[in-house]
């Protein structure tokens, strides 16, 4: 063999060349596929928002609307009823769709005086209004996020969808499942005297079938306490930010 592969200089040169080649190839592939991936993410967001409004696949209500119909249905049910809320004022703009809750959270972290932009989607289905609030929080391992739709009195939840990046399959990952998610439907976010309370994912609240809708609590998932607490915090904080604006709407 001509090359002495044991020399230190050879090892270093090999490592550098390898990293450069692999890096270039991966960057190339990533930029070629990027338009496709972005389009898929947009479709997913539309499907999520529609799902929180109770618009799902006609055959399987636990599935999203088909990807190829997402844009059409989104235009039909939500259209340009998209708002950016800052404090208690709202601006109607389709830019709302592009606002990422994560980025707004990060900006607020860097600058406590930053006035965050909050996207709000107002869907109309069968003459009813759905105020869809996107939210983001932390589960046990990684990020969790969701879309919760509220009625026009901002008192009860009309639909919810949760998703996660890396919760434990079979435990925390169950926040995606219908049995957990559907418990939120009809649940009150205000207490009896009308103060904001959010919804708690609660262990042993003596209401496993979720018959009581006015106790501001849903039954927790077995074996996923931290993910459940994450959902509680996310829902509580996510909707509270919109409260000043909702108050002005109520008046």
């Amino acid at each position: 063999m001509a090359i002495n592969t044991d020399k230190n200089s050879y090892t270093i040169i090999f490592a550098v060349v390898m990293v450069l080649v692999v890096g270039t190839v991966l960057a190339g592939i990533s930029s070629v596929l990027k338009p496709n991936i972005t389009a898929n993410k947009i479709t997913e967001k539309q499907q999520n928002i529609l799902f929180a409004m109770g618009i799902a696949d006609t055959e399987d209500p636990n599935e999203f609307v088909p990807a190829e119909k997402a844009q059409e249905l989104f235009d039909q049910y939500v259209g340009d009823e998209q708002y950016i809320i800052t404090g208690n004022s709202a601006q109607k703009t389709t830019d709302a769709f592009n606002i990422e809750v994560k980025k707004e959270n990060d900006k607020l972290k860097q600058d406590p005086n930053y006035e965050r932009k909050m996207p709000l989607f107002i869907g109309k289905k069968d003459g009813e209004e759905f105020y869809v609030v996107p939210m983001r929080g932390n589960g046990l391992w990684d990020a969790i996020w969701g879309y919760v739709s509220l009625d026009k009195e901002f008192k009860t939840v009309k639909g919810a969808f949760f998703d996660h990046k890396g919760e434990t399959p079979g435990l925390g990952a169950n926040i995606k499942e219908a049995y957990f998610r559907d418990d939120f439907i009809g649940e009150h976010i205000l207490d009896a005297s009308g103060n904001y309370k959010g919804i708690t994912v609660k262990k042993g609240n003596g209401d496993p079938k979720n018959v009581r809708k006015d106790d501001n609590a849903v039954d927790a998932m077995a074996g996923a306490t931290i993910t459940g607490d994450g959902v509680t915090a996310m829902v509580k904080k996510g909707i509270r930010m919109y409260q000043p604006y909702f108050e002005t709407l109520k008046k």
Binding site: M1, I3, T5, D6, Y10, T11, F14, A15, M18, V19, V22, V25, L26, I29
Partner: peptide
Amino acid sequence: NIIPSKIRIIVQLVVVAALVIV
């Protein structure tokens, strides 16, 4: 024949990781 034996495991890892990312 050209992989330096000192870093062969790392080279293997890079190859798998790159393919998996693809």
